[in-house]
Design a protein around this nucleic acid. Structure first.
Length: 308
DNA sequence: CTTGGACTCAATGGCCCTTA
DNA sequence: TAAGGGCCATTGAGTCCAAG
């Protein structure tokens, strides 16, 4: 559910004091300061890693972050077996990981800073080869082409950017050489968006309401995708319709419309065309998969927790 | 019923700074 | 030197209304 995060601390000084007092940090090469290269200065950045979570202190800033999902897995299954995020990460897992993190960085107040970014997403077990959906269904987000679109044997990955958020949709099957058709869909929320949601610290993630809030924003943003079934598989559709639809699925069509009047109606028209011709089954399929997965990770884990 | 203009406010992109 | 925030001025999305 929760994955990568970055916290920027308000005080670089406190972070540096913490490092110096607890040790076990690394320092990079030497830096020379001054005109005549005489004085050696303390080398930044200073780094301290616990599993995969790293605290990095530079001359002016200090940040802590990485995948809390992997961190949980490493704690649970060890360095070798746990160094991945292709299993499920439940709400209860999040709570445990946050508690462990607090222990591992005892002496550093993790809440004296704010979240610069936070990833929220799901690993979905899908019917077809994961890359099929990337190539044929996840076409546009907010009517824009993906900013990154990798399609190789080793990696199939699309990243869509918009405002202060981004979507990452990738094929975990090829990435990790898995047996299962695993597709990961995750949203990256930037600081502006997190501020809007009132989610500023790791502490805020312990709150059930906030997890529900994150999920509802996830689903809201998900609607911004243009996910359409493969129109070429539909012999019942007229070639004219398929061409017209294809035109509207092309990013430059929308670039051309920028700033024009009644853009909203045009966007509605595309949505209608997809819906009316029943080309929205993939979108519905994913919406339901995501809902089910969230319910499982959020609510079922609570039942387990109460029983345990 | 469709198209275009005006208005308002949030999104966008550019600039600047930090970091690697 | 390039990439990634943060901040801020400008642009454009969205809504309403009027005209064709």
């Amino acid at each position: 559910m929760i994955d990568n995060f970055t916290i920027k601390f308000y005080s670089q000084e406190l972070s540096e004091k913490y490092l110096k007092s607890t040790g076990n940090y690394t320092q990079s090469s030497w830096v020379w300061k001054g005109e005549n290269d005489k004085e050696k200065e303390t080398k930044y950045p200073l780094r301290k890693k616990v599993n995969n979570i790293e605290l990095r202190v530079t001359e002016q800033n200090s940040v802590l972050g990485n995948s809390i999902h992997k961190y949980f897995n490493i704690n649970m299954y060890g360095e070798e077996k746990g160094n991945h995020n292709h299993n499920d990460f439940s709400y209860c897992g999040i709570l445990e990981a946050l508690e462990q993190l607090k222990q591992d960085f005892k002496g550093l107040n993790l809440n004296e800073g704010y979240l610069q970014s936070l990833e929220f997403g799901f690993n979905l077990l899908v019917d077809k080869e994961p890359k099929y959906y990337l190539n044929h269904n996840f076409l546009l987000f907010e009517h824009k082409a993906p900013a990154i679109n990798k399609a190789t044997n080793a990696m199939n990955y699309r990243k869509f950017e918009h405002n202060n958020i981004a979507w990452k949709v990738y094929d975990k099957k090829t990435q990790y050489g898995l047996e299962n058709n695993l597709l990961r869909v995750e949203i990256v929320l930037g600081s502006r968006e997190l501020k809007r949601l009132g989610i500023q610290t790791l502490n805020d993630l312990k709150n059930r309401e906030n997890i529900l809030l994150l999920f509802s924003r996830f689903m809201e943003f998900f609607k911004g995708f243009t996910i359409v079934d493969n129109r070429f598989n539909r012999k019942d559709l007229s070639p004219e319709f398929v061409s017209d639809l294809g035109n509207r699925l092309e990013p430059s069509y929308w670039k051309n419309k920028r700033g024009k009047s009644n853009l909203v109606r045009d966007k509605m028209k595309l949505k209608e065309m997809i819906k009316q011709s029943n080309l929205n089954t993939t979108e519905i399929y994913f919406t339901e998969l995501i809902r089910d997965k969230f319910n499982e990770l959020f609510y079922d884990c609570d039942v387990v927790r109460q029983v345990a």
